[in-house]
Design a binder for these strands. Structure first.
Lengths: 104, 104
DNA sequence: GCGCATGTACGAAGGATGTCATACAACTTA
DNA sequence: TAAGTTGTATGACATCCTTCGTACATGCGC
């Protein structure tokens, strides 16, 4: 096998497409809030398996999808993992203060 | 009839009881967001009838109740009106930056 | 290759949410 | 007092949300 792994990025709204109501709805859940708080302090993308949450795998998939479709996280496939990264620059640009609020 | 009008205040969470997820859920709706944006710029409490919203009276009652139970507004009965006021001090104390975010 | 780990897709179930129509209560004003 | 205004309460309805089990796909390590 030659070349690097695919690292396909999953579909997500562009910065301009971020909607406040969608972002707030995504953050109005304790589980998703816990994910975001973990990602705020993370220096590198984290796989789903790095999160300890009181739900099953299938439900975790659901919550990560909600966060991605709201534009809060970016998901990138890497090997058999899905790496999650906070879209900090986009969120700060469109909704300054939001991440401070969530993490305080 | 002697004395002032009752001005009964409706039940609401105290400042300490405000929960971020409940507040974000309440704000994740365009109609309720419009109400809050009107109240942010208002200098005095506004009756429900002051808001022009694309829903019926009954639905307006519902949305105002959601905002009050989340702790975002205070409702006080005054005559046959229900006056609505933003709980700015409580929100600023518990979630600094939130109102700026909503209004930006 | 074979098993294991990671994570998805699908469908189902139960509950929450948003909307309305209708009927009603309380206050204001003519 | 009578009519109009303001807003609620209740019940119904459709839709969305959260959760899970199950089956499956993909990639990694032995």
């Amino acid at each position: 096998m030659t070349g690097a792994a695919p690292r396909r990025q999953l579909p997500q709204p562009s910065r301009d497409e971020l909607r406040l109501t969608a972002v707030l709805a995504a953050l109005s859940d304790e589980i998703r809030l816990a994910v975001v708080r973990d990602l705020v302090t993370a220096t590198e993308p984290l796989p789903c398996s790095a999160f300890v949450l009181p739900v099953t795998k299938a439900t975790m998939t659901y919550h990560f999808r909600v966060l991605r479709e709201a534009g809060i996280i970016e998901q990138r496939e890497q090997g058999n993992r899905r790496m999650n990264r906070l879209r900090r620059a986009d969120l700060d640009a469109r909704f300054p203060g939001l991440l401070d609020l969530v993490n305080a």
